[in-house]
Nucleic acid binder design. Structure first.
Lengths: 169, 169
DNA sequence: CTCAGACAATATTTATCCGAGTTAGCACAG
DNA sequence: CTGTGCTAACTCGGATAAATATTGTCTGAG
């Protein structure tokens, strides 16, 4: 539902939101800080620039920085920047729901639920509490911190490939 | 979000709900009626049997029939039968949300939104209004009727392969 | 450093196929 | 009328294949 790309984008944005205002960070430094692949990070950040969430600075000391206040960036905007628009409907968009099948109505309701849930959260809120406040029970890990857990349906916890390859600091 | 497999399962179940009570239908006949591939239909129906939504009858005149009242079958159960459990959370399941990061809280809220939206709809409701009541505007098509539309993010309408190959009646 | 892709690797979804087993229908011999 | 054998139509549990999507890398130009 939320892809690994969207999660990485969120983590990068939280990192930038926590940084000093106006600080320009390069994809390489963000990737190093988060323990992820620089090439992949660059790609993800590009889609955030394209969506207007980030602004890029060219040149030798270039990189990216937040283009809006973190209170103005919703989780919906982040997810849509990475995954594209939340599916409109499972029938084509039709204004008058009275004439559609019941399944269409259910699909619209589902989409609205997802959009509402994602819209309620902002980058500011995510950055205010970016990590667990205590040690998680058992061998649970927090994905915002960097141990990837499979989020496939019925997901079993596994290390992502990038985790295996990229040395964490 | 809702895969093509889940959609096909829903269409098959609506078909069975509309049929007479207790009627056993074979995958081949359901596939023919819905204009889909018999082999794929058989596979989809097997997962519904496994989930207890349908019951199978062996033998020459075998097939499937509803195992519960249609008012007791939720859209959530159908989707989970096909796609697996709606992702628990993007961190491992943790009861005490007070100690998790904000993103975890958002993820749990998102999952709950999806589960709630899907739980609100039953097979009975979907079967009560299985088709649009009027001709849809433009060249829009209803997926419950059988013209597949791409539901990928930013989806553009396309014919599914099975639609191209299987002659509709 | 960014950018815009192209490309590659991996994973998931869609779809088919197969052998073993179950059940019913039918032809035929007795 | 009964028993037998064959055939056909089904289920089941996977394995396999094709198509699509996601993750991740690379390159040249700026």
């Amino acid at each position: 539902m939320i892809t690994k790309t969207s999660l990485l984008a969120t983590r990068a944005l939280v990192f930038l939101a926590e940084a000093e205002q106006g600080v320009v960070a390069s994809p390489r430094s963000i990737a190093a800080r988060l323990g992820e692949s620089p090439a992949y990070m660059a790609k993800v950040l590009r889609s955030l620039v394209k969506a207007g969430i980030l602004r890029a600075e060219h040149g030798r000391k270039g990189g990216v920085l937040l283009n809006r206040r973190s209170s103005d960036v919703t989780l919906l905007a982040i997810v849509e920047a990475c995954q594209g628009a939340i599916a409109g409907s499972y029938c084509q968009d039709i204004d008058d729901l009275r004439i559609t099948c019941a399944f269409h109505k259910a699909a619209v309701e589902l989409r609205d639920s997802v959009v509402n849930a994602l819209s309620r959260w902002t980058l500011e809120q995510l950055a205010a509490s970016p990590r667990p406040t205590k040690r998680l029970p058992g061998d649970a890990h927090c994905m915002m911190v960097g141990f990837a857990v499979s989020i496939a349906p019925g997901g079993a916890g596994t290390r992502s490939r990038s985790q295996k390859r990229t040395r964490r600091r």
